Amino acid sequence: MDETGKELVLALYDYQEKSPREVTMKKGDILTLLNSTNKDWWKVEVKITVNGKTYERQGAVPAAYVKKL
């Protein structure tokens, strides 16, 4: 869990989004888990830093590609 009490997951593999509802992640990324009720796809929040600014993006990733921490 992070400092706000939200559950975290670890990306076990790289994943490139294939639709606007998904998010890209790299192996080793730590993501915030938002919903894991679907056994195949979990909704997560990814933090992306671009030019020193951090953005948050929500989307789905394959459940088999992440592990709860």
Score class of each variant (00 low, 15 high):
M1L: 12
M1G: 13
M1I: 13
M1H: 14
D2F: 13
T4E: 13
G5L: 11
G5W: 11
G5C: 15
E7Q: 14
E7N: 10
L8Q: 10
V9E: 00
V9H: 01
V9F: 03
L10K: 07
L10N: 02
A11R: 02
A11S: 05
A11T: 03
L12R: 03
Y13R: 15
Y13M: 11
Q16F: 13
E17G: 15
E17A: 15
E17L: 07
K18N: 09
K18W: 04
K18F: 05
S19Y: 04
S19K: 05
R21C: 15
E22I: 04
E22R: 03
E22T: 06
T24F: 03
T24Y: 03
T24K: 03
M25D: 01
M25A: 00
K26G: 04
K26S: 07
G28H: 03
G28L: 02
G28W: 04
G28K: 01
D29A: 05
D29N: 05
T32N: 06
T32W: 09
T32C: 11
L33Y: 01
L33M: 02
L34H: 02
N35I: 07
N35M: 06
N38F: 05
N38Y: 06
K39F: 07
K39M: 10
D40V: 12
W41M: 05
W41L: 03
W42A: 04
W42Y: 07
K43W: 15
K43D: 14
V44T: 00
V44C: 01
E45V: 11
E45M: 14
V46E: 01
V46L: 11
K47E: 08
K47D: 02
I48E: 09
I48H: 08
T49V: 13
T49F: 11
T49K: 09
V50F: 08
V50L: 11
N51H: 09
N51E: 11
N51A: 10
G52W: 03
K53N: 11
K53D: 10
K53M: 13
K53H: 12
T54M: 09
Y55V: 13
Y55F: 13
Y55K: 08
E56C: 15
E56P: 14
R57P: 02
Q58Y: 07
G59L: 08
G59Q: 01
A60L: 15
A60W: 15
A60D: 15
P62D: 05
P62Q: 03
P62W: 06
A63D: 05
A63G: 04
A64D: 12
Y65N: 06
V66H: 02
V66C: 13
K68W: 06
K68N: 06
L69M: 09
L69W: 06
L69Y: 07
L69A: 03
